[in-house]
Design a protein around this nucleic acid. Structure first.
Length: 217
DNA sequence: GAGACGATTTTCT
DNA sequence: GAAAATCGTCTCG
């Protein structure tokens, strides 16, 4: 398994930057959830940016509501919400407090707690199936409403940033970063904005119909 | 293997 | 009452 002592927990400023910057900077870093059942975690291989000010697809576009309140809070916190009847989504709040922006984590490479994740997702046939979608990874990591607004710097749910060398090697290994349009948004909901990032050849990326790898990088 | 669709709940109009 | 930042299953090739 990976030794997390080589990786550091970012400070608040890491998340306070532009959402697009944070979304791409998160590729190759770790998400770890220490639950009572044990530790589960993986490497981020796909992310999407959602920003309040120029993005009709963002939950915060129409202003603050009870549901999206966490997005307007301080950066580095979790914005977790429920959708489509069954699924939790895990987002990381970005930019300065009062701005409704976040990064949606769409896919991970499972690394820590494989057994626990398999137990949580008995229907997954392969290990890639454990975390190759936003609803799937939340389920595999045991992320639910109790982590709404959790501080990623001090709660059981944390982000670890590996050394720069590790990240560039990892990104290179999987063919570089692709920037393209997001998934699951309607035509009028900012579907054309190139706010999605993923590792070109990574097996865990949830490339769907709309997400053809167009703009290589 | 790809495309269609139903499940199910929270939130807003 | 409808839509939603999805998933799993069913159908047809």
């Amino acid at each position: 398994m990976f030794d997390l002592s080589d990786h550091k927990i970012p400070d608040r400023k890491f998340f306070a930057r532009k959402t697009i910057t944070v979304a791409s900077a998160l590729l190759g870093s770790f998400v770890v959830h220490d639950s009572p059942e044990g530790r589960a975690g993986g490497i981020i291989v796909e992310s999407e940016a959602y920003v309040e000010y120029d993005d009709p697809g963002c939950h915060a576009w129409r202003g603050e509501t009870k549901r999206n309140r966490a997005m307007f809070g301080p950066p580095g916190h979790a914005y977790v919400y429920f959708t489509y009847g069954n699924h939790w989504m895990f987002n990381i709040v970005t930019e300065k407090e009062g701005t409704g922006c976040a990064v949606l984590i769409r896919a991970l490479e499972p690394v820590e707690g494989l057994e626990l994740m398999r137990k949580r997702r008995p229907k997954a046939k392969t290990d890639e199936d454990l975390t190759n979608g936003p609803g799937k990874l939340a389920s595999a990591l045991g992320i639910g409403k109790e982590l709404y607004r959790a501080d990623l710097l001090s709660s059981p749910l944390k982000i670890y940033i590996p050394e720069k060398r590790f990240i560039s090697k990892y990104i290179k290994k999987y063919g570089g970063i692709v920037r393209t349009t997001r998934i699951g948004l309607g035509e009028n909901a900012g579907a054309i904005l190139p706010y999605r990032f993923y590792l070109a050849n990574h097996p865990c990326v949830s490339v769907r119909a709309k997400g053809r790898s167009v703009c290589g990088n």
